[in-house]
């Protein structure tokens, strides 16, 4: 199965489970969790079921397109269901069957892995899912998001598209993956990998980045003062990405690192709090929504 079909298959599968199929968010981010459709929407009592593909940037993992497994940008297929349905593990295993992975013919395990995103003041408990020894999915029950207790609890399923595809297509090198007939992963992303790695490690101007960080941070705070949580959150994402770039350059010492993470976390907390209050003042509209009886 090529990558394109994998994505279509997963979208179709989760659509049938009454997930909204949305698109990636247009601000740089390190993980699908940071998409406001996950971060903000998992806050508060409103039900929420969604799935989307998120291109995720990890500047420190860039390898100029030379490493068969490590990437500056990889793709996550992200599913959020709130409240977490009772049969979520079975749903997930069924999605693997749709991808042609029959659990009876493999060794699939749920191995403890506790997830924490210090910049988001978020953590959860769950597993990494192993397919014949390979971690293909991160499976997390959110316990706190933006410093707020998750209630009800959202479950997050994050498929590593490249990992899964390399298994399904039996390829050793990510760039040899078939995206769709006649197009390899390399055709689509190799230049991106090289240029972004080169930029992150060699070209990016750390002075400019330090300035940007402070500018974005100020703007996030100012925007929050106007009680506009979504644009404010965009600047939190920008802070986070700039921080990741600086970190990849080794421009931030260990002590300073804690400080920068703390600053992003503080903003994320503020956004979470504002988001909750705004939704509350709106009377948590999704709670009343007709047809939102898909689970439980």
């Amino acid at each position: 199965m090529n990558v394109q079909d994998m994505i279509l298959t997963l979208q179709k599968f989760w659509s049938k489970q009454n997930c909204l199929i949305l698109q990636a968010y247009d601000v740089e981010k390190g993980a699908g969790t940071m998409n406001p459709m996950t971060f903000l929407r998992s806050i508060g009592p409103e039900p929420w079921n969604v799935a989307y593909v998120e291109p995720s940037r990890r500047p420190a993992d860039g390898r100029y397109g030379e490493n068969p497994n490590r990437l500056y940008q990889h793709h996550q297929f992200q599913v959020i269901m709130k409240p977490s349905p009772d049969n979520i593990q079975e749903l997930y295993l069924n999605s693997l069957r749709e991808l042609g992975i029959n659990p009876e013919e493999h060794d699939i395990r749920f191995v403890e892995d506790n997830w924490e995103a210090p910049t988001l003041a978020a953590w959860g408990l769950g597993w990494e899912v192993w397919l014949d020894g390979m971690e293909i999915t991160q499976f997390t029950y959110f316990q706190q998001v933006g410093g707020l207790d998750a209630s009800p609890v959202a479950v997050e399923i994050t498929y590593g598209i490249e990992r899964l595809a390399s298994y399904i297509q039996n390829k050793e090198n990510v760039f040899d993956l078939e995206w769709v007939n006649g197009f390899t992963y390399g055709d689509v992303f190799l230049q991106n990998e090289y240029e972004q790695s080169k930029y992150s490690f060699e070209i990016a101007d750390s002075n400019m980045l330090f300035n940007l960080f402070s500018t974005y941070e100020r703007e996030a705070k100012r925007t929050l003062e106007a009680n506009l949580v979504i644009p404010a959150y965009d600047y939190v994402l920008k802070c986070s990405h700039v921080f990741n770039l600086l970190d990849a350059q080794g421009a931030i010492s260990v002590t300073e690192r804690t400080g920068y993470i703390g600053r992003v976390r503080q903003l994320a907390r503020e956004c979470a709090k504002h988001y909750y209050e705004i939704r509350e003042s709106l009377g948590f509209p999704m709670l009343k929504k007709e047809g939102n009886d898909t689970h439980e």
């Binding site: 014949d132 020894g133 390979m134």
Partner: peptide, 11 residues
């Protein structure tokens, strides 16, 4: 399947 998968990961 299981053997090959694990070999691939270890590789």
């Amino acid at each position: 399947n299981v053997r090959k998968g694990n070999e691939k990961v270890l590789r």
